[in-house]
Write a protein that binds this DNA or RNA. Structure first.
Lengths: 339, 339
DNA sequence: AATAGTTGCACAACCGATTGCGCATTCATA
DNA sequence: TATGAATGCGCAATCGGTTGTGCAACTATT
């Protein structure tokens, strides 16, 4: 804490102050001093000195020499929903617990930004790159493998790197079951169930649609193409899509499978604006938001198990799977009173 | 893209391939070649070569030599609300536009984590450190100035570094005015207005309380200590605090000034659980969340002007203010039909 | 043809840490 | 007392860029 003289303190300065050598100081500071047979006494003296002078290792120099940055990179579509923000937070927390530094960058579901962010992360020589919800995970996996850096996919799977994702199909089956149970309890027309939100070309949406279809099929219900509206995630798109659906059908759906909280926002807004009671429609959302739950306690939500997903991710950071196309599904949890 | 032979390509490899020297390659790649009088022809050849071979600058080496990392650091309490997540996103977007790399770290409103994150960022030699909503901004500002690194505060002000914050007092006055207008329109008892959420020791909460008080005073209304409950931000705390208030007063408040969406969550949940109609209470929230707005269109919200705040922040990154205690207030915007 | 100025590039010394290697001491053993 | 092993530490090369300096070769000037 003393002598904030002018420039940053280096191991050379410390060596001079301690009447020792830079290599010794280095060994002491990075904990390899026993292996180098530095005496405990000298080590202690140097450590105290470093502490007193407020020394901090220059990570650039260390990274350069070690050829490892000690940084973990993650790219993320957005921060603005509970799922992704929780991914970022849990990821950071676990990394911090391990003393690893993280760099998180959001890329707005835009393939060009994803590539650009990946390029930057590779330039900073991150040790692993986690691609979360990437629109083109394989493109990034290839950039990484060309650079000799391991990459992992999260949330949306790829074929060129191992992937940890939610069990979308099974989760969707369960969510759909819950919706259908409620419809039966209410003796409503189980045909009028609408799946809304997401992208047809995105793996998770496809899986959820398949789960939706299977759950209905099991009860002898057919699913028509008009029952499924993959209008992208944005609130405005969901709003417009619901309006179009109601125009066409002439009435509201009896139940809805909403594919994200962001879509939910548009749907709730449209219902409000039209003077409808949100509670008249049985709603499930494949996502979780506590504020939505507070406002609408009858809303059924699938909460994706972020802590487990991140834990599996770190398992693979520790021990990379041999199969580069390895895929692991983590079961999400249904929240909100199912009946 | 060719020859992903084995190791990462360096300027030495490129120099050999181009029959040139590392210094020339370096100058070409970082754009200083004209100043060094490298011929246009050679520059072009080297650039093409680098492109073809997929060269990427080792940022650690560059940072070490230049003694500047090209990284901007930000610490943040959390990602899980729209205000902070939007700060992170807008900050990143602007930095990306300028070709600057960012590192964002969330520190859970915990002073120890804040210091630890700051220490890491300083070790990575960030060029500026932005402290957002820090519980102890001055401690971090001092760490930074000891390390010779500029720091700025965002959202919560400090005295040791310049601060960009919301105009909390004026915003709170306006929000309170809107609440009181509605109360009058409804001929409800304007005395029963509750300010809830936040921390008494935090600058923003104090300012908002002062604005709340002033707006009421202007209408001849006194504010009692029991009208103000700074129970921290967490949903559970707000829930418990509201319950205690209602127990004591024997009835619900006529209106509420809720100090954050996270507190709002607890309040709405408690009202729902108690079977109350959320619409019976006139509510304002000093924060903004589109999902809440969709569910509760009568809710009045103050949306903090994140784009402007970030723009001012970058103004100060470009040209640091002379006064280290400089403070700038950015006006938030009232959203939701005021009447 | 001699001199001065310009053009075009390469040399080599850094930046701050890490690490293989080797050289003095000291200690144990014969 | 000589010999071998163990102890304790410093030397110097290295990671991959950046940048001050210098030196040819070429052009313009008188």
């Amino acid at each position: 804490m003393s002598s904030e003289s002018s420039r940053k303190l280096t191991i050379y300065d410390l060596a001079k102050l301690a009447n020792s050598s830079p290599s010794t100081v280095s060994a002491v500071l990075n904990g390899t001093w026993q292996r180098r047979r530095i005496s405990r006494k000298l080590a202690k003296r140097i450590l105290e000195l470093a502490e007193r002078e407020g020394y901090s290792t220059n990570m650039q120099a260390r990274a350069l020499r070690r050829d490892r940055s000690g940084i973990l990179g993650m790219i993320l579509p957005l921060y603005d929903n509970r799922y992704f923000s929780s991914i970022a937070q849990v990821f950071e927390a676990e990394a911090r617990r391990r003393g690893i530094f993280t760099i998180v960058s959001c890329t707005n579901r835009d393939p060009a930004q994803e590539r650009e962010a990946a390029r930057m992360m590779l330039a900073y020589r991150v040790e692993h790159l986690i691609c979360t919800g990437a629109t083109d995970p394989d493109a990034i996996a290839e950039m990484c493998s060309a650079a000799g850096i391991a990459s992992l996919n999260l949330d949306l799977p790829g074929t060129a790197a191992p992937s940890v994702i939610s069990a979308n199909r099974e989760g969707a089956r369960r969510l759909t079951d819950a919706l259908l149970d409620r419809l039966e309890a209410r003796r409503a027309d189980a045909a009028r169930v609408l799946f809304i939100g997401g992208r047809a070309e995105d793996h998770n949406t496809r899986e959820r649609i398949e789960g939706f279809r299977q759950a209905r099929e099991k009860r002898g219900l057919a699913t028509a193409p008009t029952d499924i509206v993959t209008c992208d995630y944005a609130a405005e798109k969901a709003q417009a899509a619901l309006e179009a659906y109601v125009d066409r059908e002439g009435r509201l759906p009896a139940a809805m499978f909403v594919n994200s909280t962001i879509s939910l926002e548009g749907i709730v807004r449209w219902l409000r604006l039209g003077g409808h009671d949100v509670n008249d429609i049985i709603m499930g959302c494949f996502d979780w938001d506590p504020l939505a739950a507070a406002f609408h306690p009858r809303l059924i939500m699938m909460r994706q198990d972020v802590p487990t997903m991140i834990a599996r991710l770190f398992d693979w950071i520790d021990v990379p799977p041999e199969d580069p196309a390895r895929r692991l599904e983590v079961m999400p949890e249904i929240v909100g009173d199912p009946m």
